Computed example of a mutant assay.
Amino acid sequence: MKARRISAEDVGRKAGVSRTTVSFVLNNTPGKSISEDTRQRVLQAAAELGYTPNEAARRLAMTRDKTIGLYISHSKSVFSDAFIMRLIEGMTQTVNRNRVRLVIHQMPLMGSNYLQLAEEDGVAGLILVNTHEDDYELQRVVDSRIPAVIMDVHESLAVDQIATDNRQGAREVVEYLISLRHSRIAMVTHARPEFTAARLRMAGYRDALKAADLGYDSSLVKTGNFTEESGYLATEELLQQSELPTAIFAGNDVVAYGVLSALRDNGIAVPQQMSVVGFDDDFLSRYLSPPLTTMVLPAAGMGATAVDMLLHRMDEDAEEQDLTRTILLPSHLVVRESAAPPNN
């Protein structure tokens, strides 16, 4: 049986570094901050394993080292999601400035094999969006030592992460509604609680209710699924209750569109009879009738920062690779015309 060819991953495992670092050392890539100790460990591991990349493999590696993957879990086309498009806009500017390639894939909401796709795409690093806590594939990404940034917060994972402060942002939304004298406030989440952002926004909703001595009523909470339709159906359920809420907090603006549509179809005026507040500031939100009050997220800035974090991680010396970073960016509420004091 033919012996398996030694790969750069084998050299990296033996030297205790990433495949990217192996490539930088063996290709003498300029401008990379790699210590002499790390360089010698890689060279020694390559020599002991008998690793000799051919010219075609070397050219492929040089191309790969300039390619990063953006993998987005989503239930519909990511290109119809304004928040995702603003993320990509911010990433594109940074990618172009650094002369690297960006490969974009839409992934299923559950069970994505990130590493297999990364190998097929020939990428040197990953940015993952809309991840969920129960996805065991995330730990496999961490264990593989491929440079990665998760655009979410998973406290159990030793990986670079960037997100907005979803919990605080949601709390501020509900506090605003309470300041308008609403006490029966419903929430339609934008995703199941397995998704960290959805869970944290729910926690912020409950924080605000508790701080105002308002009891939590589970019948006022409905689960959306990233889509307008899920917001519409959730609102239809809320309207079946004998005592209606006076305000609805939608977990994102896309879900809020469905909420507003259901209220309109049921003859309920916004904000005269029901207040609605969103989260994300989708580019259409200001043009609705009435314009949507919502939490503004720095999507383009998040995208640019995620790429910067990943490129820094790809350039790091092996000794620094265990020092992960988590960045939380602030959001702010923009008040428009979709919320008002309850009409008793």
Score class of each variant (00 low, 15 high):
L26Y: 08
L26N: 05
N27R: 10
N27L: 14
N27I: 04
N28L: 08
N28K: 13
N28F: 07
N28Y: 09
T29M: 10
T29K: 06
T29F: 07
P30C: 11
P30F: 08
P30A: 09
P30D: 08
P30K: 15
G31T: 07
G31H: 12
G31W: 04
G31R: 13
K32R: 15
K32G: 00
K32Q: 15
K32T: 13
S33A: 15
S33T: 11
S33N: 14
S33Q: 13
I34C: 07
I34H: 01
I34T: 14
I34R: 00
I34D: 05
I34F: 05
S35K: 04
S35W: 02
S35H: 05
S35Y: 02
E36I: 12
E36Q: 14
E36H: 09
E36W: 02
D37K: 14
D37G: 00
D37F: 13
D37N: 11
T38D: 07
T38C: 11
T38F: 05
R39W: 01
R39Y: 06
R39N: 08
R39G: 07
R39Q: 12
Q40F: 01
Q40N: 11
Q40A: 09
R41G: 02
R41C: 03
R41N: 05
V42T: 11
V42R: 12
V42Y: 09
V42I: 10
V42A: 04
L43S: 05
L43K: 12
Q44I: 10
A45I: 03
A45H: 05
A46L: 10
A46E: 02
A46S: 14
A47S: 13
A47D: 11
A47L: 05
E48N: 02
E48S: 10
L49V: 06
L49E: 08
L49W: 02
L49D: 06
G50F: 09
Y51P: 04
Y51K: 03
Y51I: 07
Y51A: 02
T52A: 09
T52L: 12
T52S: 07
T52R: 15
P53G: 07
P53R: 09
N54R: 00
N54K: 03
N54G: 14
E55Q: 14
E55V: 04
E55S: 11
A56I: 14
A56Y: 10
A56W: 00
A57E: 08
A57G: 12
A57M: 13
A57L: 13
A57V: 04
R58L: 13
R58F: 02
R58Q: 13
R59F: 04
R59K: 14
R59L: 15
L60W: 06
L60N: 04
L60D: 00
A61I: 04
A61D: 06
A61H: 05
M62R: 15
T63V: 08
T63H: 12
R64L: 11
R64M: 15
R64E: 12
R64S: 14
D65C: 07
D65M: 14
D65N: 15
D65Y: 02
D65P: 01
K66S: 13
T67L: 01
T67H: 10
I68W: 03
G69I: 08
Y71K: 00
Y71D: 01
Y71N: 01
Y71I: 04
Y71W: 08
Y71A: 03
Y71R: 01
I72Y: 01
I72P: 05
I72E: 02
I72W: 10
I72S: 10
